[in-house]
Amino acid sequence: MKRYSLVVLVLSLASAFVFFLGRAMLELGPTAIDLRAPVAAHLAESGVTHPVTAVLLNYRGYDTLLEIAVLLLALLAILAVVGEAPASPTRAAHPVLQALGRLAVPLMVVVAVYLLWAGAFRPGGAFQAGAVLAAAAVLLHLVGLLPGWSKPRLGLRFGLAAGFALFLAVAAGLLTQGSLLQYPPAAAGVLILLIESGLTVSLALILAGLFLLLSREAEA
């Protein structure tokens, strides 16, 4: 009974919230600030031509720096939670599935490289590319071609942290330009591509790691 009234209470609160929020949204006029204009105006100096990438890695690159930190941190926290356990031996899947893996993974890598390269001028970028790469690793793991992680060794830890460390180093190095992450317009494109490449590798490793760390006990 108590539980029932709690449900009713929460649901009615939620409905009321949606009602008022919806009404308030409808009342809204035009915004005082329109960021599209400055985004477009500085696109030439940003080093990329795709506005979302410009926002992500240049205008608000600091957000992205911290975001990568969050991701690395999540992996770290998971490591701390699950502790060390020997990875169980991988059980190979049926050859048909393995064939799929062998077929799909190179394609995924190609797509990832394409997305990374496309990021500068059209939708795509390090994160999407990294996610696709990570998916490739997950696929390989699922069909039994890639073992789960028992614990990341030095090389792997280095790879996991490299993208973030590179980003951090570039961000700090650019302090010489006057402030954190202040790209000189001439070098912006190259630097962003450099950062994105590093991030792609590390993001792929981290995202794959999220799965590979967790699923190691799955096959027991």
């Binding site: 049926h94 048909v96 077929l103 799909a104």
Partner: peptide, 16 residues
């Protein structure tokens, strides 16, 4: 072809 390959192998996996 991507979708075909995927659906074939998943179809196989599920049937298996």
């Amino acid at each position: 072809p991507l979708v075909m390959a995927a659906s074939a192998s998943i179809g196989f996996a599920i049937a298996h």
